[in-house]
Amino acid sequence: MTVLLSTRGLSKHFSGLHAVENVDFDLPAGQIRALIGPNGAGKTTFVGMLCGRITPSAGAVIFDGQDISHLPAHRRIRLGMAYTFQITSVFPGLSVAENVALAARPHLRGEAEVAAAVQDALDRVGLGGRTGQVAGDLSYGHQRLLEIAMGIAQAPRLLILDEPTQGLSDGEIAAFKALIRDLSATTTILLIEHNMSVVMETADMVTVMNFGAILAEGRPEEIRADPAVQAAYLGTDADAGT
């Protein structure tokens, strides 16, 4: 199995706070990997260093065999990464369709292809009927879905989703699980997720972070049974949502 992304000794210190400390991480191509851990474990900081939003204090990021540690964020995205924000970050004054079109354009030539990609991405998240609406007028849950559609429209090789199901209804979460399995046919997925049912039902492998370091890594059942993980994260309601 080829490794699509790896990190070596990746660290980030915020004035003394070791948000991420010396992380070695490997993600094989084609996998759905869940990244879990308690609040403040360093998950967002870690993926921020993968896509170039955050400059590491030390360490290297290797994508598709190429050391991309020195590349600015926009160049990494062009190599085939997509990142959806934990805190919803759309273009509030633009239409839903234009939000997604902006995501699709760097990868497509003609506006007709862009329009087709936009419609496809919006259909897949269930926003196909809202293309003309102003993004800022959408409900919070729909803005989360728009954020996912933007990630899909980038047709990335690696899709990083930071807590995509936060604020979604039960029905939308069920649809999201199906969507993720569907997407994994064409893209590698790194999914930060607090909802355990989503993790258990979609992930091939789970990485657990705690205090900026990797605590455990394994198949979902193994992780659920791991006492160290239960102590750190799952706590007593290990079976919640399953």
Partner: peptide, 9 residues
């Protein structure tokens, strides 16, 4: 949204 634009490549 400048940050979002950058993160779209």
């Amino acid at each position: 949204n400048e940050e979002r634009t950058r993160m779209l490549g």
